[in-house]
Design a protein around this nucleic acid. Structure first.
Lengths: 356, 356
DNA sequence: TAAAGCGCTGTAACCGATTCCTTAAAATAC
DNA sequence: GTATTTTAAGGAATCGGTTACAGCGCTTTA
């Protein structure tokens, strides 16, 4: 109280030099070591001494410096989180799940948005490494087994040698833990559902096929179509990139061509939106002119009562699981690689069927 | 390369002790000070020496510890970001804007989701203070001039004495910089638009009136109604909380009552969604049974071609402005308080009018 | 030719914590 | 009453950087 006041006087409006452990020690008439023991509840401290120190700490609002603690303990209590586009609801939900667990475990999160850009991802990794984060949750921007940047990024990640959980976007032959989604199976299921609803000519707007997640969704769907005794025509495969604008363009072109599949599978939420935008603009009516099933749920559509069938997973849960898994890895660095597959759910609303 | 290898052997699968400045110095045959000079491009360094050091750094993938740097420099390069609910698109967009600028300026973000909870906010502030963040962007969970928790939080923020920008949610008599939105005026405008569209009995689903932002939107709307020569009936003011479930309940009750205003103003995006959900469930048709204008744009509705008129601002821009403002404050702690009002836009789509 | 200045580098103190080691007093055992 | 253990607290090294200062060789200037 008194000290703070003095400092305020000295450098008004400047960065206030916060009170340090040394100050607390002096004010309480003990050594730094003792204050540290009080702080961490470690070792022997006489009850009276503890009280004395605690009073001083409270009175002066002592807050230990995380940098100093990290430096001397040789570890931080921050977790890195890296996602490709935070303005996609999917990652918002996931991040929410992560923050929930982080809050419980008193961890801080350092956050990066890589904007689907491999170079930004590399930069972010470097920064995270400087920060000496305790662990990392990574939703990669690129396919780590494929992309041109990949080998660099892999090297970087290996060099970091940090507890790591990959979320959402799998790559082949990765040594790291992961929380993924049954991309193949859910997409397979999407085909089945479209078939069961009576559609016989099926199409798909794919995601980015440079990503394994994109290929898996296409191949799962394709296999589903085949197993229904149908075939997936080449011209009914529209190669997208998981983003809205491209899906929109593809869909519009498709409708303008005048010839399209009875039913379409859209590979993620952004793709679905692009598709829906096009249907609206082209005067196409779902349930009359075309049927659709999407990957990813779009909560707003449900609220509005707009029928939109989908296969999806719990994004929120995905975030929670990811951080929990990371913590287990941190606890036990030697345990074998762990992969958790978030199960998919099917939500049928009628949009997968042509009724009119 | 060689060193890393050795370490890998020693403690396999353990946290690798990264190479330090001391190691680099030794390997390059110079002192720590010289390495530091190379690192920061400060002071005199002979070109040959610089080369030598840089080679060693590159070869051994030297990455300086942020904790050590912060400790000795007495400042960090991290910014704290605190939002009430990251799974609301609004904050996702804002965060995106923030990350954009942070990336340019090579700043790290420490992120917290307070879930509209004052206690979590207090905890987060404590953690941020430990982290000695360079500055803080805060979208408060509570009204700092009103709420029961407020005085504690205010005290805490004052104690932190950290460069601070408040975003989105204003409070009275706050000494801090802020980036806000023309809540009063935009809501006033909403009333005007509803009037111009021919509606004469207007209603509102408010936000949380414990928040200034909620009160401003209500009062702006009320004044607008009055200035149109109408009055805002008490029974046409539905007191919500900015969240979807409550707005949904209120709207449903309103429709069940059989008597409702010609036009409704919904106070934010979540409120709009609750309202829309209710209209759908109750078989109410917008444009026939009721007109609506919302605060906040809902991008998906535009894509789907669902008419939804609104007053709104650029959330993305809001994030960018906030961080830029924060950086200016950090540069110049003595400058007078700065407030930026994000202008509002009006988007009319027909939903503000009853045509059938 | 001596003093001053410049370019370059190293030594050592420091930032704010933790922790090992030591010492001393108090409590307990024999 | 002495030996041993337990409790309590301080001194000092340490973590990995930054930076003020000193020193040295060489060039420039009076």
């Amino acid at each position: 109280m008194h000290l703070n006041h003095m400092w305020n006087q000295l450098h008004t409006r400047r960065w206030i030099t916060l009170i340090t452990i040394k100050d607390v020690a002096q004010l309480a008439g003990v050594s730094k070591a003792t204050v540290s023991r009080v702080l961490n509840n470690s070792g022997y401290v006489n009850e009276a001494t503890r009280q004395k120190v605690e009073v001083v700490m409270k009175e002066h609002q002592y807050i230990p410096s995380a940098s100093a603690v990290s430096l001397s303990r040789q570890e931080t209590s921050t977790i890195g989180v890296l996602v490709p586009e935070i303005d996609n609801m999917f990652y918002g939900d996931m991040l929410h799940g992560i923050t929930e667990v982080a809050d419980q475990k008193e961890l801080s999160l350092i956050f990066f948005d890589t904007q689907d850009n491999g170079e930004k991802e590399a930069r972010a990794l470097r920064t995270l490494s400087q920060q000496r984060v305790r662990g990392l949750i990574l939703a990669p921007a690129v396919d780590y087994s494929n992309d041109a940047m990949a080998s660099n990024l892999r090297k970087q990640l290996n060099a970091l040698n940090i507890p790591l959980v990959i979320v959402d976007r799998d790559s082949d032959n990765m040594p790291w833990d992961g929380v993924f989604y049954e991309n193949y199976q859910s997409s397979y299921q999407a085909a089945i559902e479209l078939y069961k609803a009576g559609n016989r000519r099926l199409g798909v707007i794919t995601g980015d096929l440079k990503l394994k997640i994109g290929r898996d969704r296409l191949e799962g769907f394709r296999q589903g179509v085949l197993d229904c005794g149908l075939n997936l025509r080449e011209e009914d495969i529209f190669e997208g990139d998981f983003l809205t604008p491209r899906a929109y363009e593809l869909s519009k072109a498709m409708f303008h061509s005048g010839d399209w599949p009875q039913a379409i599978y859209t590979s993620n939420n952004s793709t679905s939106l692009g598709f829906l935008k096009a249907t609206h603009e082209c005067g196409i009516e779902i349930g009359r002119d075309i049927a659709v099933i999407g990957n990813d749920r779009i909560a707003i559509l449900d609220m509005l009562g707009i029928p939109f069938s989908c296969v999806y997973r719990d994004n929120h849960e995905m975030g929670r699981v990811a951080l929990r898994m990371l913590l287990e890895r941190i606890e036990n660095p030697d345990r074998p690689r762990n992969i958790y597959m978030i199960p998919y759910s099917v939500q049928l609303s009628g949009s997968e069927r042509i009724t009119k």
